[in-house]
């Protein structure tokens, strides 16, 4: 996964869900850096997540990320996302997730990153969940120093102007992807500029 993912929650009602999908589609056609849609498993309910995925699969041709507290492991669904994001808080959790191939993983603790990145290994991707620009800068730096380009880094951010600043920090520090809860056109224009020179997006 490379580029930007915009989030859709599985607890949205039908009208809200349709409107949100349409908006993400519009933004994706306007800004090629939007390469993914991220489905957030807020309901923690397989049937609601499945319904949401069905709606999206009918209309969305790019990559899909599923982001939730349980990852993809153990789910009984035909669909399998390109990436399953899982919240990981401990090395025990990490072992479980890596065992199921469930990466990337949002990690908030800088001290945890080096161990985590070794556990993910080549080809994996760590997803950071920084709350501040400083946290983002130092987390990405620790990761790139300990692993170089072997493990990709994704950063999940919320919405609003500050999230664009955090995403800017992430991309300047070499992150491959940003998962936005929400972002407006002005913010996406900035991100598009930052990513435009990466050949895979041109």
């Amino acid at each position: 996964m490379r580029g930007i993912a915009l989030t859709v929650s599985d607890i949205l009602f039908q009208e809200g869900l349709d409107a949100r999908i349409q908006l993400v589609k519009e933004l994706a056609s306007e800004f090629p850096c939007v390469t993914c849609i991220c489905v957030r498993d807020d309901a923690c309910d397989d049937s609601m997540l499945g319904d949401t995925l069905d709606r999206i699969l009918g209309e969305w041709s790019k990559d899909i990320v599923v982001d939730g507290p349980y990852g993809w492991a153990g789910r009984d669904m035909e669909f399998c996302p390109e990436v399953a994001a899982v919240t990981v808080r401990s090395m025990e959790d990490l072992d479980t997730v890596v065992g199921h191939g469930g990466v990337p993983m949002p990690v908030g603790d800088v001290g945890f990153l080096t161990d985590a990145s070794h556990a993910v290994g080549n080809g994996g991707m760590l997803c950071l969940e920084p709350t501040t620009m400083k946290d983002c800068l130092e987390s990405c730096t620790v990761l790139s120093r300990s692993l170089g380009p072997k493990v990709g880094t994704a950063v999940r951010v919320w919405s609003g102007e500050y999230s664009v600043s955090v995403a800017t920090v992430a991309l300047v520090c070499g992150a491959s992807a940003v998962l936005f809860d929400d972002v407006d056109r002005d913010g996406l224009e900035c991100i598009q500029h930052l990513l435009r020179w990466r050949r895979h997006l041109v």
């Binding site: 991309l171 300047v172 070499g174 900035c190 500029h193 930052l194 990513l195 435009r196 020179w197 990466r198």
Partner: peptide, 9 residues
């Protein structure tokens, strides 16, 4: 300016 992207830095 930001049109230089990350590589412009």
């Amino acid at each position: 300016d930001i049109r230089g992207g990350t590589e412009g830095l």
